[in-house]
């Protein structure tokens, strides 16, 4: 026989009232674990997502674009930090989460396992990838866990700047020379489907969705978010004069949504399982940087211990005098 504790009742009341669960509140272990997994995965995505874009910093085609790109990537690092802090409110340490990323036990968004081959990819990433992130994060502003919700409110302001700068790159390319238009179209061709995969597996195959919706961690399903993204993005593609690489794409008058073609879920699962075009490189880059920096982090700790010891000696000496 199960008995409902006061904590459980309070938790359910909070969820039912659309209030926020806070770190000190009682919460079901499953709720805590789901959030840790999701927030950590989100934090890792922000951090791994720095790589495909930093690939173009040193080759950015103008001083202005270079500055915007550095600032954007810097924002993503900040998002990562902020999300690791949100995860830490659930009783895990950032070190442990980072270790789980490095050893492949936690994942990050599949989108960052594709290479950035041309400058136009900086446009499509801002436009589509940050655009998809916004759709997801606007939903997550309403998530039931307080620190996560607040992190999303803060992130979203910056994400819309990211999306705009990406779209602006695409606009410049699509209004430019034939070569530039070709770069833009090629980038859209490569990034379109992976962007749709960012929302995760279809609802029919999503193992966590139902429980997450009940706990109000998620407020919309993967397929609904994906639809929202497609509806939002197609007019933007039309304005650019670019062709979305989907022959089945058509406005459905009855549904008042775009119908779109089948996503290649085999490709999605291949990437998720670690066999995408850049999975190995992304983790090798991350682990390599971490290992290269170990002596620096050790030095910082050693120095602060020395400084503390010296301060203690000074106090002792004063005490003795």
């Amino acid at each position: 026989m199960t008995q409902t504790t006061a904590g459980e009742t309070r938790f359910q009341t909070t969820i039912d009232a659309d209030d926020k669960v806070e770190p000190r509140d009682w919460m079901p272990e499953g709720y805590r674990h789901t959030l840790i997994r999701q927030i950590a995965q989100h934090a890792h995505s922000e951090v791994i997502g720095m790589q495909p874009e930093s690939n173009w910093i040193t080759r950015a085609p103008s001083l202005k674009r270079k500055a915007i790109l550095i600032a954007k990537i810097q924002d993503e690092a900040g998002h990562g930090l902020y999300l690791y802090s949100a995860a830490e409110t659930l009783g895990v340490s950032r070190e442990d989460l980072v270790d789980q990323l490095h050893t492949g036990r936690q994942k990050y968004s599949s989108i960052f396992n594709y290479p950035t081959l041309t400058w136009a990819d900086m446009g499509t990433i801002g436009w589509l990838v940050d655009g998809a992130a916004i759709v997801n994060q606007i939903m997550l502003q309403q998530t039931s866990y307080g620190p996560y919700s607040r992190a999303m409110v803060r992130n979203c302001k910056e994400e819309s700047f990211h999306q705009r700068q990406g779209y602006e790159i695409m606009l410049t390319l699509s209004r430019g020379s034939a070569e530039q238009r070709a770069l833009a179209q090629d980038a859209l061709d490569r990034w379109w489907w992976p962007s749709l995969m960012m929302f995760g597996p279809p609802d029919s195959e999503s193992t966590h969705t139902e429980q997450s919706m009940e706990w109000k961690i998620k407020r919309m399903t993967n397929d609904d978010l994906r639809q929202k993204f497609v509806d939002m993005t197609i007019p933007q593609a039309e304005y650019l004069g670019l062709t979305v690489p989907d022959p089945d794409l058509v406005w459905n008058v009855e549904r008042e949504h775009y119908d779109f073609g089948d996503i290649d879920w085999d490709e999605f699962w291949t990437v998720i399982k670690g066999h995408g075009p850049m999975n190995r490189e992304r983790i090798q880059h991350k682990v390599g940087a971490w290992e290269d920096g170990e002596w620096v982090r050790e030095a910082a700790i050693a120095h602060s211990e020395k400084a503390a010891a010296r301060a203690a000696d000074t106090i002792d000496a004063r005490g003795a005098a």
Binding site: I70, Q74, G293
Partner: peptide
């Protein structure tokens, strides 16, 4: 300095180096 972005010894330092580069 911008070559360091995503390669710093810790995330905080990635942000700091990007800041100085900017």
């Amino acid at each position: 300095l911008s070559e360091w972005v995503s390669l710093g010894p810790e995330l905080e330092e990635d942000i700091a180096l990007a800041n100085v580069a900017l």
